[in-house]
Design a protein around this nucleic acid. Sequence first.
DNA 1: TAACCGATATACT
DNA 2: GTATATCGGTTAA
Length: 203
Amino acid sequence: MLHQPLPVTFYQQPTQDLAKALLGCLLVKESPEGAASGYIVETEAYMGAGDRAAHSFGNRRTKRTEIMFASAGHVYTFMMHTHTLVNVVSGPLNIPEAILIRAIEPCDGLQLIASRRHRVKQAVNRTNGPGKLTEALNITGDDYGRLLTEAPIYISAGFVPDKIESGPRVGIDNTGDARFYPLRYWISGNPYVSKTRKMKNVR
DNA sequence: TAACCGATATACT
DNA sequence: GTATATCGGTTAA
C-alpha cells in the first residue's frame, strides 16, 4: 500500500477532537486507475441525536443513516443532488455522530485528479468542497459502510497543522440554533479550504 | 455576491 | 407521488 492506514483506535476519541485530529491527515482512495489522495484541510462535526443539523437527529434511524450508528472509523457516503459527500463515522456503537470531510489538498494521483475534474480550470477549485473532493478521489456510494483502516479507502498520518480555526457550519440554514454551533474546523490559511457560499452562513 | 438551476437518492405522505 | 437535501457550476451584474 502507498501509505500506512491509521489504526481504528485513532477514531475512538470524542467527535470534536477527532474532527480536529483529522486535519492534516491523508485521505487515500485506491481505484483501478490508480491511487489518489489529499490532505484533509477542513471538517465539520455532526453531533448525533442532539444536533438538529445531523441526519441522525433524534436518533432517526433509516437505511441511509444506519451506518452512523456503527462504531467509529466507518465511511458514511450519501448523495446530494448530483454529488456524493463523505463522512467519517465517529462516536461509540449506537451513538450516531459523524464528521464531514469538506476539503482536501491534493497529494498523490495529481494526474487522476486532474482528469476526473478536467472541466474545472483552476487546480484549487478541484478539491475545495465536499462534493468536489469525492469526484476527485472517486469516492462513491460503493464506499458506504467500508472501514477506513484498509484499502481501497483509508486515512493515514500526514502533517500537523500550524493553526486550526473553527466557526459555524455551512449549508444548514433551516435547522434552528444548530446552525450557529462552531463545529466547522479548518487549517488556518490553507488555500484549499472551501469558501462559505453565502454571507448569512458567517453571521 | 446573488440568483438560478441542474438532475437524483432518500424519506415521508 | 412529492418534497427536500452537509452542493457545484454558470450567469449576470
